[in-house]
Amino acid sequence: MPHTNPYPDPALQEVTNRNRNARQLITAFSSSTLALAEIWQHVTTALDDTLTLVTQLTKLQAELSRIRRQRADMVAAARATLAAHHDGEADPLFYLRDELTAQRADEAWPGERG
């Protein structure tokens, strides 16, 4: 299941909208004053950087959200393991192993190899 950011940042959308508006203005100014076209190209390049940063920030926010969810799932598994141990369950570590498997842990815990 692809991960989507449950908390999109409306400010980033506003930045993107302002960027698009600025590009439209630059296109109009550039056509009307050809002598300044090279200067407007520098501004356009800076606007390109803004969009690149918005894209990177959006990806980082999604990654942070995914990592926070994984951490919360691991904490829940740890608490379930402690409760299972306290209750005398036969295999209290099941909860941690299950969560590690769910998160596709690369390395098995000692005793799980076989």
Rank of each mutant, 00 (worst) to 15 (best):
A105R: 06
T58Q: 08
V54G: 03
H3P: 00
N17W: 03
R68W: 11
A102V: 07
A35H: 04
A37W: 00
D49M: 12
A84W: 01
L64T: 13
Y95W: 12
Q24Y: 10
H42A: 11
A62F: 00
G114D: 07
A80E: 13
Q13D: 14
R71M: 12
L100K: 08
D9E: 11
G111F: 07
V75E: 07
R66K: 09
R20I: 11
Q61V: 03
R79Q: 15
R71D: 09
A84C: 03
R18W: 06
W40M: 06
L82V: 15
N5T: 02
I67F: 08
R97L: 06
S30T: 05
L93Q: 04
R23W: 05
Q70A: 15
T50W: 05
P6C: 02
R104Q: 13
R66I: 11
P10W: 03
P92L: 01
T16L: 13
Q13A: 13
A105F: 07
N17L: 06
A84G: 00
I39Y: 15
A105M: 04
N17V: 04
R69N: 15
A77K: 01
R20Y: 11
T16V: 10
D87T: 13
N19A: 04
T45H: 10
A78S: 10
A46M: 06
A108L: 15
R66Y: 09
H3L: 08
A102W: 08
P10R: 05
R113N: 12
